[in-house]
């Protein structure tokens, strides 16, 4: 250990630039940790693949679409993309419980930056990781009868990013309440599984009983899944009958909810959940 030169005291200035640096560095940490853990990526892709090819082929035999190109697997494809980001993003959010357990949350929260900056970085990190990971599923688009359209892929990535931001924020809300690491994963399962089943990811929402209509249309995930399917199906050369069967419009009573409004609802949920997480963390930590 050598003698050390002393540098003078520099007190950092606050301000927006500093907040942005904090956001970026929290985001970067998520990416570094993701890259270090390839097992996590492989494990979290297994389930979506199972759903896409096993459930798709199995249930597909029951459902006659009347189309050469579009099958039930085609219908499932956007839903499975949504499903894959759902679990990764929820895990990214709930990982704050581990950060608390290992003390790193304290390092972040005592820093002279806002809790908003920290949690925004966390959400961006979770969204990036989830979106990048779902690209592995996009490779198999051809097997589901989905074309490899570059613009479609960009649109899908954008929508997945927005959706996983929302789910990471939801994970953070949960993490602010859950103090024990043992209860974190079961809680994610408890919340995420119904969100997925009630979102139209696995079955069309067009001919549901009343109670299910209400539940699915109050689920924010529904408004994240429907645009994904729209982006895929607008590029398929199929008859209106097949469109109506596999990609029915999202209706509020008689009103067909436009895609931009659906995306806006998801964006609103992103902001709302993030604000709630900030409030809860500021209060409890």
């Amino acid at each position: 250990m050598s003698a050390t030169e002393i540098s003078s005291v520099r007190v950092p200035r606050g301000g927006l630039g500093h907040e942005m640096r904090a956001v970026m560095t929290v985001w970067l940490r998520e990416l570094i940790r993701f890259r270090r853990d390839p097992a996590r990526m492989i494990a979290s892709l297994a389930q979506p693949f199972l759903f896409l090819f096993v459930l798709g082929a199995g249930l597909g035999s029951l459902i006659e679409t009347g189309s050469e190109t579009a099958s039930f697997t085609t219908f499932l494809f956007p839903g499975v993309l949504a499903m894959s980001v759902l679990f990764t993003a929820a895990f990214a959010g709930i990982s704050m419980v581990w950060d608390r357990e290992f003390g790193f949350l304290r390092e972040m929260l005592v820093a002279p930056v806002s809790t908003t900056a920290i949690l925004t970085g966390k959400c961006l990190g979770g969204a990036t990781v989830a979106t990048v990971q779902s690209m592995a599923i996009l490779i198999f688009a051809g097997f589901a009868g989905v074309p490899y359209d570059p613009l479609m892929i960009v649109e899908i990535m954008g929508l997945l990013f927005l959706m996983s931001f929302m789910i990471t924020a939801l994970g953070l809300v949960l993490a602010s309440r859950v103090k024990q690491v043992q209860s974190a994963m079961p809680l994610v399962q408890l919340i995420i599984t119904p969100l997925m089943f009630l979102s139209g990811a696995l079955f069309p929402l067009s001919r549901l009983p009343d109670w299910l209509y209400w539940v699915t249309h109050l689920n924010p995930m529904t408004y994240a899944v429907a645009p994904l399917r729209e982006v895929v199906f607008e590029r398929l050369a199929i008859t209106p009958e097949v469109q109506a069967l596999l990609n029915p419009p999202l209706l509020w009573g008689g009103f067909a909810v436009p895609v931009w409004l659906q995306a806006l609802i998801v964006a609103g949920c992103c902001a709302g959940l993030l604000a709630l997480a900030v409030l809860l963390f500021a209060r409890s930590e």
Binding site: G14, H18, R21, A22, R33, F102, G103, E107
Partner: peptide
């Protein structure tokens, strides 16, 4: 500056990455 009694490092990051993270959060030039 705070040095806590209990550990507050990220074990999945390298020593340098932990310091970089800290420097960014504290706005080090």
């Amino acid at each position: 500056g705070l040095v806590f009694q209990e550990p507050t490092l990220d074990g999945y990051l390298s020593a340098e990455q932990n310091l970089k993270f800290h420097g960014e959060l504290y706005g080090v030039d």
